[in-house]
Amino acid sequence: MLVFYVPALLSGVASFVLYSNHDPRLFLVKAALTIHFFKRTIEVLFVHRYSASGVVLDSAILISCSYFSATSSMIYGQYLTQGFPEPKVDLKYPGVLLFLVGIIGNLYHHLVLASLRTKSDKEYKIPRDGLFGLVICPHYLFEVLGFIGIFFISQTLYPLCFTLGTIVYLMGRSYATRRWYISKFEDFPKDVKALVPYVF
């Protein structure tokens, strides 16, 4: 799993050396993406508990390249906007707030999931704490909020497209996860949605 995230993290770290830190919007985009992949790396090392199945190396390399190129492109794209007029409606500070809510909520729900299993325990359980009583994938919901925050900070086209792609992808994953839980647990609460409380 480290193969997924470390190259994108290094791209974020390198951007502080490669691109000037004078533009607040560029600085915030670099900081948000670097923090995002730093958190993911820390979670791989200290939080997540994985089942026996792994990821095929060629898939891991493809995913890693995707994260790396997306991170590098968002930062470089933001760098290229320096000197252009600022957007008429400035969303960077609401974006910072959304990003922080997203990253903290995502971390909290990952900790909840990790607490369900001990090292020797391989049995699946229905998570109940936090927003798990409303949606089966609140960690995905907060991931979406984090990327909406990054788009708000940036207010450029590529982060918008990446965020929309992330939303569609995580909607599909959360829907499949909910179906899996329904198939494995007879007592799975039917009012628990996939991603968005009370809606989807």
Rank of each mutant, 00 (worst) to 15 (best):
I104E: 06
I104F: 13
N106Y: 02
L107S: 11
L107H: 15
L107M: 12
Y108K: 14
Y108P: 04
H109W: 05
L111E: 11
V112L: 03
V112Y: 02
L113E: 08
A114R: 07
T118H: 11
K119I: 09
K119Y: 11
S120V: 12
D121Y: 05
K122W: 11
K122C: 10
K122Q: 15
E123S: 15
Y124I: 13
Y124W: 15
K125W: 14
P127E: 12
P127A: 11
P127G: 09
R128V: 14
D129V: 07
G130R: 00
G130D: 00
F132V: 04
F132K: 08
V135R: 00
V135A: 00
I136H: 00
I136W: 00
C137R: 03
P138M: 05
P138D: 06
Y140H: 12
Y140S: 08
L141I: 12
L141H: 03
F142Y: 13
E143K: 06
E143Q: 13
V144R: 03
L145S: 10
G146C: 10
G146T: 07
F147G: 01
F152Y: 12
F152K: 03
S154Y: 11
T156K: 08
L157A: 10
Y158Q: 04
Y158V: 07
L160N: 01
L160P: 00
C161D: 04
L164V: 15
L164T: 04
T166Q: 12
T166C: 13
T166E: 12
I167A: 00
